Deep mutational scan, measured.
Amino acid sequence: KTYTFRVRIVDEETGEEKEIEVTAKSEEEAKKAAEELKKKYPNLKVELE
């Protein structure tokens, strides 16, 4: 079973919002993916929905 999570990304500089879908095998995995995004884009606000 896989879970699909919507991750909302807000670029703090431009105020631009993007939504991406993360497919993960567990909620834990999705959280890790969101953390990776935060590391990659430090000025983005990442929200897991």
Rank of each mutant, 00 (worst) to 15 (best):
Lys39Pro: 02
Val7Pro: 00
Thr14Gln: 02
Lys32Pro: 00
Ala24Gln: 01
Ile9Lys: 00
Ile20Val: 09
Glu16His: 06
Tyr3Lys: 05
Ile9Cys: 07
Asp11Met: 03
Lys40Arg: 11
Arg8Pro: 01
Lys18Ile: 15
Tyr41Arg: 03
Val46Asp: 03
Leu37Gly: 01
Lys31Gln: 12
Leu37Tyr: 09
Glu27Tyr: 15
Tyr3Thr: 03
Glu47Asp: 09
Tyr3Phe: 10
Asn43His: 12
Lys32Val: 10
Leu48Pro: 05
Ala33Phe: 15
Val22Phe: 15
Lys31Glu: 07
Glu17Val: 15
Leu44Ser: 12
Leu44Cys: 14
Ala24Trp: 06
Ala30Thr: 01
Lys32Asn: 09
Ser26Asp: 09
Glu36Cys: 14
Val10Gln: 05
Lys25Ser: 14
Ala24Thr: 05
Tyr41Asn: 04
Lys1Ala: 10
Glu17Asn: 05
Arg8Ile: 12
Ala24Val: 12
Glu13Ser: 12
Gly15Ser: 02
Lys39Ser: 07
Glu27Cys: 15
Lys39Cys: 08
Glu21Arg: 06
Leu37Phe: 09
Asn43Phe: 10
Ala34Lys: 07
Thr4Ile: 13
Glu35Lys: 06
Lys31Val: 10
Leu44Gly: 05
Glu12Met: 14
Val46Phe: 12
Arg8Leu: 09
Ile20Lys: 01
Arg6Thr: 13
Glu35Gln: 11
Ala24Ile: 03
Ile20Asn: 00
Ala34Met: 15
Arg8Lys: 10
Ile9His: 01
Asp11Tyr: 03
Lys1His: 08
Thr14Ile: 02
Thr23Leu: 12
Arg8Thr: 08
Ser26Tyr: 02
Val7His: 00
Arg6Phe: 12
Ser26Gly: 05
Asp11Ser: 03
Lys32Thr: 08
Ser26His: 03
Glu36Gln: 10
Ala30Cys: 08
Val46Gln: 03
Lys38Leu: 10
Lys31Pro: 01
Thr23Pro: 04
Ala33Val: 15
Thr14Ser: 07
Leu44Glu: 03
Lys32Met: 12
Lys38Phe: 13
Leu48Phe: 14
Thr14Trp: 01
Glu19Pro: 01
Ser26Thr: 12
Val7Gly: 01
Asn43Lys: 07
Phe5Ser: 00
Lys18Ser: 10
Glu28Ser: 09
Glu29Lys: 02
Glu16Pro: 00
Leu44Asn: 04
Arg6Asn: 04
Lys45Thr: 10
Phe5Ile: 10
Asn43Pro: 03
Leu48Cys: 13
Ile20Trp: 12
Tyr41Val: 03
Glu35Asp: 10
Glu12Phe: 09
Ala34Phe: 15
Lys45Cys: 06
Gly15Pro: 00
Lys32Gly: 05
Lys25Leu: 11
Thr23His: 14
Ala30Asp: 00
Glu35Met: 11
Thr14Lys: 03
Val22Thr: 01
Tyr41Leu: 03
Thr2Tyr: 14
Thr2Ala: 07
Ile20Gly: 01
Tyr3His: 05
Pro42Gln: 05
Lys39His: 09
Thr4Ala: 05
Thr14Met: 02
Glu19Leu: 15
Glu47Lys: 07
Lys25Cys: 14
Glu47Phe: 15
Leu44Lys: 09
Thr2Phe: 13
Phe5Gly: 00
Asn43Glu: 05
Glu12Pro: 15
Glu27Ser: 06
Lys25Pro: 09
Glu36Ile: 09
Thr14Asp: 02
Glu49Gln: 14
Leu48Gly: 05
Phe5Trp: 13
Glu19Val: 15
Glu36His: 08
Val22Glu: 00
Glu19Ser: 13
Val7Cys: 06
Val22Gly: 02
Lys45Pro: 03
Lys32Arg: 12
Glu13Tyr: 08
Lys25Met: 12
Val7Glu: 00
Pro42His: 05
Glu29Gly: 05
Lys25Gly: 13
Val46Arg: 02
Glu16Gln: 07
Leu44His: 14
Glu16Leu: 09
Lys31Ile: 13
Glu35Ala: 11
Glu36Asp: 10
Glu16Tyr: 08
Val22Gln: 01
Phe5Tyr: 11
Ile9Gln: 00
Asn43Ala: 06
Lys39Trp: 07
Leu37Glu: 01
Ile9Gly: 01
Thr2His: 09
Ile20Leu: 07
Glu19Cys: 15
Ile20Ala: 01
Glu35Ile: 09
Lys31His: 12
Thr14Pro: 00
Leu48Val: 11
Thr23Val: 13
Glu28Arg: 07
Ala33Cys: 15
Lys25Val: 12
Glu12Ala: 10
Glu17Thr: 13
Lys1Ser: 07
Val10Asp: 01
Tyr41Lys: 03
Gly15Gln: 03
Glu28Val: 08
Ala30Arg: 02
Ala24Leu: 04
Val22Tyr: 07
Lys45Leu: 11
Asn43Thr: 08
Glu21Ile: 15
Glu29Gln: 06
Glu29Ala: 08
Thr4Asp: 02
Lys32Ile: 11
Glu21Thr: 13
Lys38Met: 14
Ala33Tyr: 15
Ala24Asn: 02
Ala30Ser: 02
Leu44Pro: 02
Ala34Pro: 00
Ile20His: 02
Lys31Cys: 13
Asn43Asp: 06
Glu19Met: 15
Ala34Ile: 15
Thr14Arg: 02
Phe5Asp: 00
Asn43Ile: 04
Glu36Val: 09
Lys18Thr: 14
Ala30Phe: 11
Glu28Leu: 11
Leu44Asp: 03
Tyr41Phe: 09
Lys32Phe: 10
Glu19Arg: 11
Lys25Ile: 11
Glu19Tyr: 15
Ile9Pro: 00
